[in-house]
Every structure is written in structure tokens, then in C-alpha cells.
Nucleic acid binder design. Structure first.
Length: 281
DNA sequence: CTAGGATCCTGTCAGC
DNA sequence: TGCTGACAGGATCCTA
């Protein structure tokens, strides 16, 4: 998905558009994508929008909340006076909606929020606001990298010493926010080979990786993740901001920006993994 | 407990 | 053109 920076971008954007608006109607087009009783939030006002790792929470003033996880291909597209779209970048950002990938439609006073999700791994769930933090995956979520000490991170690596470092930093119970792209980017920045066993990293390498995870995600949040704005370029053509942001992701065959080596693509932890075999040790 | 693979689902793309 | 398998910005479940 949509990794942490994208979800944070959605949160900030949505807050601007739907805060204080009343939800008028919920249409569930795909049962799998919506859990719970939708009537509980109808006619309630949006009080706040929070984020837990890669999960988004819309709190309503009647103490019910919508927990949203975009997983791999989820997107939230708000269509009001103007359109705001973020999440997994695709033509849906600019398409006529609803379409075949629209799973849930939330109608507000001044606009409509579409939850699109090609692969249906994502979901929206109605919860009592006080129960959000009791959801199992949220309860188990590790700290975000900028809130984690080097010592804590290093200790966690020892607990998973025999797993590849890439698999470990993708584990949201170890450190939260990184997904397949930012994991590759952080490992490149820290000059660490993705297949290294987590236990083989020195304390210094662990610190450097933690710093890289912070740097990569903070910079992406600053640039606004994947949104309609950086999907549709000024001249009207389409582009993905990752094409300019990423140093290794989807750059196999290209020259490494640091050492000129050739970026390779391999499989680690069951995921496509991009790295420079020359400078990542 | 950990590590790794299969699995959920739809769509696209490379290669025959 | 039409088919096939591989793969995809995530996380859980199952097995060893």
C-alpha cells in the first residue's frame, strides 16, 4: 500500500476536506470491503482523523469510528468542489467514479469519498471509538522509527537474528510504517544488503538504518506521498512521484546514484527487492 | 517462540 | 491475437 507517508498524506488531505462534515450515506458495493453496521456512523459529524501506522481512523462525534486500511491497492478519492486523491496511484485518481474498483461510497454534505481497491485486501471497519486501539493489529504495532531509540531497534534485530533484515523491517511489530518501497530505499541509504541476517548488523549499522528509515519517510511525507497532484503533471501527462523519489525501487538495470553500480532486482522475504550489489554490503 | 511460504483478489504485462 | 505465468506500495495464517 500505500505505506506510512501515503497514509499520512491522506490523513492531512482528508482532514482539510471532510472535517466537521456530516456523513449522509454509506453505500457498500463490495461486502468484503466493509465490516460492521454502517448505520452507526450515518448522520454523524467527522470529529478527527487519526493514523496508526498505515491505518487511518475517521472519528465521528457520536463516538463511533471508521478504521480504514488500504493494504496493497486501496485509494481514497474525495470528489467535492475539487478532487483530492491519494493512496495507491492509478488512473482512478482522475477517473469517473464510482467505477468497477469502487468498493464503498461515503456521501458527505459537500462531497463524496470513494474507497477504491482493486485487489480487495483493504477494508473499512466500524468500531466504537474507544475500541480502535484495542484492535489486535493496532495494539501490536511497533513505534514509528522517529520515536524509537537505537537501543530498542538493535534489541529487536537480535530477537529476529536469523531472518533477513528486509523481512524484519517490513514487520510492523518490529518497526512501523515501512513497506516494500521505503524498506528498499532505507536499506540503500544505509548501504546494507537486504539479505543480511538481522543479527549480523552492528550497532552502528542498525543506527544508520533507523536513521535512513526516518529520513526516507519524512522526506516523502514532506513531498506529499502519492497524490493526484504529483500523479497528474502540470502538462496534463501522468507520472508517479516515486519515479523521481526512488533511488532503487523499480530502477533495476539503472546506475546506482551513489557508486554507479548496476541496480539489481532479487526476491527477499517473498517480495521484489531492489538494491545495489556494489555498495550495499 | 521464530522463519518462510501460501494465501486473500484483480489486473497487467512479458513471453510464447 | 490469445493464452500463460509471474508479479504487484500488505498482512495473516499455516507449517516446520
Amino acid at each position: 500500500m500505500p505505506e506510512l507517508p501515503e497514509v499520512e498524506t491522506v490523513r492531512r488531505g482528508l482532514k482539510k476536506f471532510i472535517l466537521k462534515q456530516k456523513l449522509q450515506k454509506v453505500e457498500v458495493l463490495c461486502e468484503k470491503s466493509f465490516v460492521g453496521e454502517s448505520d452507526l456512523v450515518v448522520r454523524a459529524k467527522v470529529q478527527d482523523i487519526r493514523r496508526f501506522g498505515k491505518a487511518l481512523v475517521i472519528d465521528f462525534d457520536n463516538l463511533y469510528s471508521l478504521l480504514i486500511h488500504l493494504r496493497m491497492t486501496g485509494q481514497l478519492i474525495y470528489d467535492g468542489k475539487e478532487r483530492y486523491a491519494a493512496g495507491h496511484p492509478s488512473e482512478n485518481f482522475v477517473a469517473e467514479l464510482p467505477n468497477g474498483q469502487t468498493r464503498v461510497v461515503l456521501t458527505f454534505d459537500k462531497g463524496t469519498l470513494y474507497f477504491n481497491d482493486q485487489r480487495k485486501f483493504g477494508f473499512i471497519k466500524v468500531l466504537d471509538t474507544f475500541d480502535v486501539e484495542k484492535e489486535e493489529f493496532i495494539e501490536k504495532l511497533a513505534r514509528e522509527p522517529w520515536k524509537m531509540s537505537g537501543d530498542e531497534f538493535f534489541e529487536k534485530l537480535q530477537r529476529h537474528k536469523d531472518a533477513s533484515i528486509k523481512a524484519v523491517i517490513l514487520d510492523q511489530k518490529v518497526i512501523c510504517g515501512l513497506g516494500n518501497i521505503y524498506a528498499d530505499e532505507a536499506l540503500w541509504m544505509a548501504e546494507i544488503h537486504p539479505k543480511r541476517k538481522a543479527g549480523s548488523l552492528s550497532r552502528g549499522e542498525a543506527m544508520s538504518l533507523l536513521g535512513a528509515a526516518c529520513a526516507v519517510m519524512e522526506k516523502s511525507i514532506e513531498l506529499g506521498g502519492s497524490t493526484i497532484r504529483n500523479y497528474v503533471k502540470a502538462d496534463g501527462t501522468r507520472g508517479n512521484y516515486l519515479d523521481s523519489f526512488a533511488r532503487v525501487y523499480h530502477r533495476d538495470g539503472e546506475a546506482c546514484a551513489r557508486c554507479g553500480g548496476t541496480i539489481e532486482k532479487i526476491k527477499v522475504a517473498g517480495r521484489g527487492t531492489h538494491y545495489c550489489p556494489v555498495c550495499q554490503k
